[in-house]
C-alpha cells in the first residue's frame, strides 16, 4: 500500500471559458515495488495525474493517501512527500543550472537539509546509478551530450532517495541506443534498488518490454489497468483512442487469422519469436 488515489478530479481554470476537466474520478493504487507504465496520448491527463502524486498539483476533488496518510491533511509535510516521490519531468535536462554536474545533483539533497558532505555522498551514488562516473563530476552540465544531460538530470532526482520514481517520457528525443540505455538503467534501479517506477510514455513497444502493469489514460479517465498482455488484447479499442498496441500484437493476430497456431498475447519480440517458432515447428495449423 504505497500511493492510493480516491475519486480524484482535477479541473483547469474552473468557471472560465477555458475550463478543462483534466482528470475524471480517478481511483488507483500504486503498490510498493511495482513497475507501472502510464500510457495515453497528449492531453489524456497523464502528465496532470503524475503531478498529483507528489502534490505539485492539488486535486479539485478527491483524496490521495501516501502510506495511508492523507496528503491533503492539515499538517502533512508536503516537502517530505516530494522527496519520497521523485518526479522527473519531460526534457529534465532543461532544469540543469549549476556550474558542474556534481553540484547540480546535490541541489535536491541540500534542499532536504543534508550537510554538504552527505549531499555529495548521495549525489555520487546517484550519478553511479545512472552510469555517470567520476570523470563527469566537475564538467559543466551544459557540455554533456543529450543522453548524458538527461541522465544527470535523472540523478538529480535520484539523489533525494525517493521510494517511487515517476518519469514523464524519459526517452523523448533520444536516439534508439540512448533510449535503450535509459530504459535499461531504469529497469536496473527497479531490480537492484527496489524503487517503484511509474513510466509515462506514448510508446507501447518501450513499455511492453519493461513494465508489469499498464494504466491507459484517455480523456482524463483510466481506460485500462492490467498486465500488458491483457491490455494489448484490447488493441482495437486502443486504436480507437489514438493509441496502438505493439507491432508484434498485430503480426501475431494476423498470423492467427491465417491459421497459425500462435499465442497472440505475446508482447515482446522475444516472446513473439518463440511462439512463431513453436507454431512453425509443430507444423500443425490450428
Amino acid at each position: 500500500m504505497s500511493i492510493k488515489l480516491e475519486h480524484v478530479n482535477y479541473i483547469y481554470s474552473p468557471g472560465t471559458a477555458y475550463e478543462i476537466h483534466a482528470l475524471k474520478d480517478i481511483c488507483l493504487e500504486l503498490k510498493d515495488g511495482e513497475f507501472v507504465g502510464l500510457i495515453g496520448h497528449t492531453g489524456s491527463g497523464k502528465s496532470t495525474l503524475v503531478q498529483h502524486l507528489n502534490g505539485l498539483v492539488k486535486a479539485t476533488e478527491g483524496r490521495i493517501y501516501f502510506h495511508g496518510e492523507d496528503i491533503y491533511g492539515a499538517d502533512y509535510d508536503m516537502r517530505r512527500l516530494r522527496s519520497k516521490v521523485g518526479l522527473v519531468f519531460q526534457y529534465p535536462e532543461h532544469q540543469l543550472f549549476e556550474v558542474d554536474v556534481l553540484s547540480d545533483v546535490c541541489f535536491g539533497p541540500k534542499n532536504q537539509g543534508l550537510s554538504a558532505e552527505e549531499a555529495q555522498e548521495r549525489a555520487k551514488a546517484a550519478l553511479a546509478m545512472v552510469g555517470l562516473g567520476e570523470e563527469f563530476y566537475y564538467q559543466s552540465p551544459f557540455e554533456l551530450s543529450g543522453g548524458q544531460k538527461r541522465r544527470a538530470a535523472i540523478a538529480g532526482v535520484l539523489a533525494m532517495e525517493p521510494e517511487i520514481l515517476v518519469l514523464d517520457e524519459p526517452t523523448a528525443g533520444l536516439d534508439p541506443k540512448g533510449r535503450d540505455e535509459i530504459l535499461n538503467q531504469i529497469q536496473k534501479l527497479h531490480q537492484e534498488k527496489g524503487i517503484s517506477i511509474v513510466l509515462v510514455s506514448h510508446s507501447m513497444e518501450d513499455v511492453a518490454r519493461y513494465v508489469q502493469r499498464i494504466i491507459v489514460m484517455n480523456q482524463g479517465e483510466v481506460l485500462f489497468d492490467d498486465v500488458p498482455r491483457e491490455v494489448f488484447c484490447h488493441y482495437k479499442e486502443l486504436e480507437q483512442v489514438g493509441l496502438a498496441a505493439p507491432q508484434v500484437t498485430y503480426i501475431l493476430h494476423a498470423l492467427r487469422e491465417k491459421g497459425f497456431f500462435v499465442d497472440e498475447n505475446a508482447t515482446t519480440i522475444e516472446e513473439a519469436r518463440d511462439t512463431i517458432l513453436d507454431a512453425l515447428r509443430s507444423g500443425r495449423q490450428a
Binding site: D175, P176, K177, G178, E205, P246, Q247, V248, I251, I269, E270, A272, R273, I276, L277
Partner: peptide
C-alpha cells in the same frame, strides 16, 4: 551505429 530497425524487421531477423 546506435540505430535500430523497424519492429517487423527485427522480428524477421530474430526468426
Amino acid at each position: 551505429y546506435r540505430l535500430d530497425v523497424p519492429q517487423a524487421t527485427l522480428l524477421a531477423y530474430e526468426l
